[in-house]
Amino acid sequence: MGSVDKNTALELYRTMLMIRRFEEKLFFLFSTRAMPGSMHQYNGEEAVAAGVCSCLNKSDYITSTHRGHGHCIAKGADVRNIMAEMFAKSTGCCKGMGGSMHIADFGVGMLGANGIVGGGLPHAAGAAWSSQYRGTQQVAVAFFGDGASNEGSFHESLNLAAVWKLPAIFVCENNLYGFSTYYRRSTPIENIADRAAAYGIPGIVADGMDVLAVREAAREAVDRARRGEGPTLIECKTYRYMGHSRFEKPCYRTEEEVQEWKKRDPILCFPKVLKEQFSVTEEELRQVEAYVDEKIEDAVRFAQQSPDPEPEDYKKYIFAK
């Protein structure tokens, strides 16, 4: 796997596990009504965020989706602040003003989850343009779903990025369903990556359940972007274990299908690879797991003990000075 050493591999595992435990904890907290709002969970898709973000520097940019917790964690935001945002606390990364669908952390280049499908794609193009203009070598990654690939913003953003040769990477998380609609009922082609041909840019299909495969695809795209050769479209074939949002029970897919995908779970399957290819020991795996569990518990404590915003705090943020 070339560039991946043992530490990197363990980090990938830790990131994926952090996302998974975060989502599991959220599910529990929501079910006990400890948390306001709604949420869209990332369980099953962790390899995509972890694999892609492992190729980025802190100063690189990402834009995300309504299903954005994983991207935020993988880009390096503190889970304390993400958790606090879920609890609508003043210590949240958005001071409790955004919630699950708008989590962002500009300190690590996470330019925002987005409640509008396809909303973030042109922002990534714009951030890439800004980087190109300033000559900073930063790249911008837009994460989006299969559903967003049928939005006009997908076409306009990829086209603009290709014409201007922007250092952008468009990462489609094809989890097979746009809310309830199977993607082949909304999309006439098997591979969304094929749409790259329309913009004269590379389109790559990657196994979104294999973090090393995602990383490899992303690494090539990031290198290409940094070399000034323009954008790449990567389609990661993946699967969302949960419903589209909160407690929705999917009536549009079979339990067998879910179980089939779970056999290829990106986290459960990874320890075997870690042990065989990277000589990771059981003890080292347990250390990662303990670290993650402690971080999540700490984040929940931090969030629960944090103060609410003041009722009129939002008025400070309507306009900048």
């Binding site: 834009t63 193009a125 343009w129 800004s130 300033r134 306009e156 953003s157 603009l160």
Partner: peptide, 20 residues
Amino acid sequence: TPISEIAIVGAAVGAAMTGL
């Protein structure tokens, strides 16, 4: 730009968030 009003405004937003 291309005739792409979403991209014009959206890219401008992304650029504005990142220093331009």
